[in-house]
Design a protein around this nucleic acid. Structure first.
Lengths: 235, 235
DNA sequence: CGTGGATTTGATACGGGTCAATGAGGGTGG
DNA sequence: CCACCCTCATTGACCCGTATCAAATCCACG
């Protein structure tokens, strides 16, 4: 049974938002209510640049809904996508500690709604909520592990299979005839995520398709007939 | 004037060790003394493997003195060095949160002495010392930034110059005729850090030498006649 | 059903990897 | 102090994989 929104609708809406977010998941109700009052909500539409290159951020931002990409642009204009952020992820932590701009640009891949905490508020929260610190450290450590993994995987085929596996897990839905995966990025996007040329990815995908590992359905969907086989190829 | 070591020599020695470490730098004296009692000291000699591949660590380890390398080994035996750790750096945080082994091996490059905090003690410390959490988050965020940077830099020449710049800054001493840099790794090590073949690095170094950017002195030392030029080439 | 952007395919070039041979440094024992 | 050896580094020849450029084809959307 849902409570109707009364006078302070903002509160009830935002409580909803925060409970979805792992960083705040373990907090007690009074703690949550305290935090809610500090949060600034922001919404963006698909394609909007939320944090431009070299911009300073003034706090930490947690994603309430939607998908974002974080990418760097090299001198010669190539885009390297570093992260795909979704519900529950956060960004902006870098500026908090180093007085340096966030080293990547952040752009909405879908309509997004964000929860923003200002630097001083966040700093205060960290002091009072050791569990929050723990959660943040855990998330960063997880993020580190994924980059470490990326760096030490030279073999392109395995990198691609690894990404497919990740997408399969995050965006796949079981169907007759195999897992149906809604890709979060275009071919160009995937290539930029993997740090390779668009054309190379095409060739690799064609190869995978003729090997029967994937079936391409339009530009944004693939089908994986045998997910176990994929998992197995990843060792 | 130095105080002589009395009955509790361990205390005075260890206090010394902790004050050097940025993570603890801002703590008050009583706080320090509390932590000192939790710390386990360990020493290793050059070449020793401190954390084997896939090993679980049981806490967080802070480096008191010496240099370590953290590396992963790919299926085909290639070594990818991920970090060079020195005085004040820490490792083992990954196991604390994920109940997963640290995703890299750690090996002593020189004789090292380490300060180890057990999981539960560290967890307790985090609760009581918000500043500690802040420091850890800052360090992880710094580490992330350096990996992000590495990943988005495809141009090999710039990657090499970047690493040279880093080494110059960390291990260089000004001399007549240019900055003298004591390399922390062999050529093979540097190649494994950059993720390229030993031979390729040799060729690049030869090129840089004939360009006059560096002068090679034996295997572990280089001279940089014009550090400003190097900085300039990095943009 | 047509149009423009995204994707795929083809041809070619280039950079770094690999293998093999040579060369330099740093210890060790005579 | 020198000769030797072993390890590490350099150089050369060649190969392979990915980038690049150009062209054809596909897909999504109006």
């Amino acid at each position: 049974m849902e409570l109707p929104c009364t006078s302070d609708c903002r509160l009830c809406f935002e409580k909803l938002c925060m409970q979805k977010i792992p960083v705040f998941a373990n907090l007690s109700r009074p703690e949550l209510e305290k935090i809610v009052r500090l949060i600034v909500h922001r919404s963006y539409s698909k394609g909007q640049v939320i944090v431009p290159v070299e911009a300073m951020t003034d706090g930490i931002t947690i994603i309430n809904s939607g998908k974002l990409k974080a990418s760097r642009y090299t001198a010669d204009g190539r885009e390297q996508i570093l992260y795909l952020f979704t519900e529950g992820d956060f960004f902006g932590e870098h500026s908090l500690f180093n007085d340096q701009p966030t080293p990547y640009q952040i752009e909405a891949l879908t309509p997004v709604s964000l929860c923003h905490l200002y630097r001083s508020d966040f700093q205060q929260l960290l002091k009072n909520l050791p569990d929050l610190a723990w959660q943040i450290i855990a998330a960063l450590s997880e993020r580190l592990a994924s980059l470490e993994n990326f760096i030490s995987q030279q073999d392109l085929d395995k990198r691609i299979l690894g990404l497919l596996g990740e997408f399969a897990q995050k965006y796949g839905s079981p169907q007759e005839g195999g897992l149906l995966v809604q890709l979060p990025l275009s071919r160009e996007g995937i290539a930029n995520y993997l740090g390779i040329a668009r054309e190379t990815l095409s060739r690799k995908f064609s190869q995978l398709e003729s090997d029967g590992l994937i079936r391409s359905i339009g530009n944004r969907t693939i089908q994986i007939p045998d997910p176990d086989l994929l998992a197995q190829l990843l060792d």
